[in-house]
């Protein structure tokens, strides 16, 4: 991954030692990482930064992983979320998948598998974003035909509003 654009990763886990160690390891794999030890911090970090992928633990004090997943997916359209938990059951996996989780991994997880899953999630994000941009470019091209500059701007504002 050296030489490539770094993947911006948000790691969320209340097990501080686990979070520190895995963050160090992922840094060596050239990820750009921000870590959070609870749901509240994670949501605040996601508001401030631009992340490609988030890796979230399920059981945390306060706002739990399922709630964090729901909020992040609602507020950050292209953010892909991986769940990494020692508490994952079939039921929680189904819930998380329905809420838009990219994958649910069980802790302890093989590090290479985690890295692979993060890369897959990143590629999915890029693909979704590319497809969205492509549609948008086509919409803009269609708008440009026969519209005044002011009309184009108004239509673009409407499109932006619809995407919120």
């Amino acid at each position: 991954m050296e030489g490539m654009e770094k993947i911006h990763l948000l790691m969320v886990d209340d097990e501080v030692k686990f979070l520190q160690t895995i963050t160090e390891r992922l840094k060596l794999k050239f990820f750009d990482i921000t870590s959070a030890t609870n749901g509240k911090e994670a949501i605040a970090a996601a508001e401030k930064g631009r992340f490609d992928v988030a890796v979230i633990d399920l059981q945390m004090p306060g706002i739990d992983g399922v709630q964090v997943l729901e909020i992040l997916k609602k507020n950050h359209k292209y953010l892909e979320v991986l769940i990494l938990s020692g508490h994952a059951t079939i039921e929680t996996a189904v819930t998380c998948t329905k809420l838009g989780a990219f994958k649910v991994l069980e802790k302890p997880c093989d590090f290479d598998k985690l890295v692979e899953a993060i890369k897959e999630a990143y590629e999915t994000r890029l693909k979704k974003k590319f497809e969205h941009d492509e549609i948008r470019i086509k919409q803009i091209q269609a708008l440009a035909l026969g519209q005044s500059p002011l009309g184009i701007l108004k239509e673009l504002a409407k499109m932006d509003e619809a995407e919120k």
Binding site: F18, R25, G86, E106, K107, C109, F111
Partner: peptide
């Protein structure tokens, strides 16, 4: 308890990996 043990093993596993 099993969750706690998984957390412990996860830390040991990541530290050994590191």
């Amino acid at each position: 308890i099993s969750h706690e043990l998984k957390n412990i093993l996860a830390i040991i596993s990541e530290t050994a990996g590191f």
